[in-house]
Each structure stands twice: as structure tokens, then as C-alpha cells.
Design a protein around this nucleic acid. Sequence first.
DNA 1: TATTGATAGTGTATATTTAACACCATGTCA
DNA 2: TGACATGGTGTTAAATATACACTATCAATA
Lengths: 229, 229
Amino acid sequence: MAYNYQYPRAALTVDCVVFGFDESELKVLLIQRALEPFKGKWALPGGFVRVDETLDVAARRELAEETGLENVFLEQLYTFGTVDRDPRERVVSVAHYALVKLTDHKAKAATDAANAQWFPISKLPKLAFDHADIVAAALARLQGKVRYQPIGFELLPPKFTLSDLQHLYEAILESDLDKRNFRKKVLGFGLLVALKETQMAGGHRPAQLFRFDADKYEKLKKRGFNFEL
Amino acid sequence: MAYNYQYPRAALTVDCVVFGFDESELKVLLIQRALEPFKGKWALPGGFVRVDETLDVAARRELAEETGLENVFLEQLYTFGTVDRDPRERVVSVAHYALVKLTDHKAKAATDAANAQWFPISKLPKLAFDHADIVAAALARLQGKVRYQPIGFELLPPKFTLSDLQHLYEAILESDLDKRNFRKKVLGFGLLVALKETQMAGGHRPAQLFRFDADKYEKLKKRGFNFEL
DNA sequence: TATTGATAGTGTATATTTAACACCATGTCA
DNA sequence: TGACATGGTGTTAAATATACACTATCAATA
């Protein structure tokens, strides 16, 4: 096809659905918009892509600027290109989703991201633009992905109990799992390393702490190992 | 995020990986480029997105213009946004993949798409831009998707035999399947309707023809039915 | 017209995986 | 020291997946 500069161009943005997990609930990080349109409404963190940065870099930059988050798990999700999704002009957005350890983030929240706030996924406010659609797509992707790739660990602190992990999966999949079968399966992957510590949670028997063995995961992944839950 | 017109903008394109199936082989439809850069090289059909059309519409329009294909199965794949993927300027491409019935297309090929040509996926020529990456991503997606969604029918003519279907799956998955187990499973989905005709292929016992029951598929899909192969 | 060659079509037995299920252990706190 | 809360552990039955071999029916031809 002809290469032609004369047509008007769509603006290109990135948006991020940031998932966190805390107190048995899956949460999403939102930003309150300071400007029109949708001023005062909640929206996904995101912004315009610069001509000299890749999409991934743009998403990470916006995330750092607006929420203070860095070095998180981030993947491209889907590109939203409806003509009227932005009332100002044509804006195409490459949506991403991120998984963060809530514990890490809480310290920074006060400084970098004064107008960022975590919302339980089941109680999201009305969102600006088509961001509700983007969140829905991200949740569907997360639910699908978690079944065959051990990405849930990105949402947990470095040390966690098997109950923590099970509650996370139950929150993501929105269904109850059998405790014994769950433990059998996840331990069977051989990706969990039992630490010498236990979690003194009070009021009951202390739980064994584990960490995720990322190196081993990379090796097994290369061999085409199947991590289906 | 600041809303700012002053920065240069990336150009936005769509590209399509068009899959077809013929003579036991999975094929991809390529276009020979008429202009620089990569003049004379083979490339994916695609082109610039207009400001008044969605991504899906843009992909279908380009497909019709460059290959004569219409009303095909088409889904968004991934957005490629490396900074230097186009030597002229920054171009971000929303890649799609399409599944077409080769039999339908062959009639049109001579007229609409003089410089379009089908290549076996295992013998692709060197491709322009990062199109080899896009094809690889599309194949991976197709291989993943075919395992849990009956989209293979999009690649077959309306009437087909179980052997046709099996050969298609074997071509996509690049592995041999057991005939009896395969037939048991696909018939078990209840999506195949046996026609009253048989295929007179000559030289051997004629094979039962089937059609895909798209209505039933839609109904079962809504009920969350599992089509895992 | 009998034989050969090519693909169609069919069932069972075994191995593997999944699903369902209940009790004791160990800590805190009243 | 008893109540309460969560941690931790195996077995059995059901369902599913896998492996496997022979007969059927046509065309071509010897």
C-alpha cells in the first residue's frame, strides 16, 4: 500500500491494569484524573507513547511516573482501537497488565502516587473512557493464564504460605479449591522451596513458609514442562 | 497524564497473518512489495489505519484490498512496537491473524491479488520488516488456540471428512494424532453434523462428509462448555 | 473378475489423572 | 485447660487419556 503522510494520525497511548492481592482480595490500582475529560473520575494509569520508546518501555515509564511502581511483571494485553473511545480525538491504546506485590508498593504509595488507590476488583468505581472493558479483558487474561503458568507468585511477597497461595488462586479464579489437592499439585511442580522459617500468625498452628524458585521455573519452562493447575 | 499534541506521533498500521490449509499443509498468504523499503521482498498484507476506522475494520479493509479476501475469521494478535521495526520512521503495527478456506479464495486469487501468493509455513521466504516475528507469534497463537477452541473449521471447506480435520490438526500442531481417539473426541463435542453425502475420492472407500454446527457451538460456548482437544 | 492398493471406519483394555473426602496438630487467648 | 482457629496430611473411586489392529469399500489393473 502507498506510504502516505497526509492522513491525520491516531494518537497512541499505553494503559496498565495493575493487579495486587491483599487480605484475600484481588485489587486493581487506579488513578484519579486531574484533567478533563473525565476529570475527577478514576482511570487506569497510562499515557502517550513517545516516538523513541517501545510499548513496553512506555508502559513501565507511565507506571513509574503515576504510581511509583518499578520492576514489576508486565505483559501486553490487547490493543483498544474503537473510534470514539476518547472524546477528544482518535486515541488507540495498547493495554497492558501488571502483577505487583502489594507489600512492596505500600511503602511508596504515600510519596509517588498520592492520587493512586487500590480497589477490590469486585467493587470498582465507574471508570473513565473504556477502561472498564480493559479491566474485564485483563481479568479474563489473568484467569486464563494462571491456569497454566505459575505467575501468581508475582502477586505474593517473597515468603508466603501455601494457604496464602491457595487464597490467591481462589480470589483470581473466583472459586473454591480443595486444600489437599491444591497442595499436592503445586508442590508437585517442584517450584516451591520450603524455608526454615514459619509464619507466627497467632491463634493457631504456625504455617510453613515457602519461596518461589524462579531459576528452576526458567529451566523447566525451556524444557516445555506443563504447569497446568 | 498530560495531553499533548506537540510530540511527534507514531504511525499506526495493521498487518495480517492469513492462514490457509491445503494438501495437508498449513500455508500463509504473502504479498510481494511493490515499493521501497524492502521492494520485491515478501511481506504480510497490511497498511495504515485511518482515523475513522477501528483496528478490526482497518485489517479487513487492507485484506480485501490486497488479497480480495472478505468475511473471514479475523482476530487481533499482538501489537509490535519496536522503535526501529520500520526503517523510515516510527511505525507501530497491530498484528492480526486470519483463517480462510483456501477453496473459497482460489477463485478470487487471479483477479484481486495478482501479487499475493500462498507459502507453506515451513518454507517461507525471507520476510520484510519484523514480519517473521509476527508469523511466529501467529503460529504460536494458532497452536495454542486450536487446543481449546474449535476454530480449525474456519480453515476447511463447508463439507469435510474426519480425515481432513485430523490432517489439519496434525499440520497445525506438528504432531501425529491417533485416529480413533481423535474421532472419539471431536464427535463427542457434538458439533459435527453427518451429511447424507460421502466424498467420492476414488481409489478407496468413500468417506462420510460432515459440516460444522456453528449455531450449536455458540450455544455451548455461552454455557462455558469445554472444547479442549 | 480377482487381486492389489489406498483410505474409511470401529472398540477395548490399561494407565493416568482428577475429585471427593475427615481427622489430628499446634499455636493463642480467655 | 479448654475453646478456637488454621496447618497439615492419604486414600479411594470416578473419569479421562492412551495405546493398539483389524475389517470395509472403493478404483485401478493384471
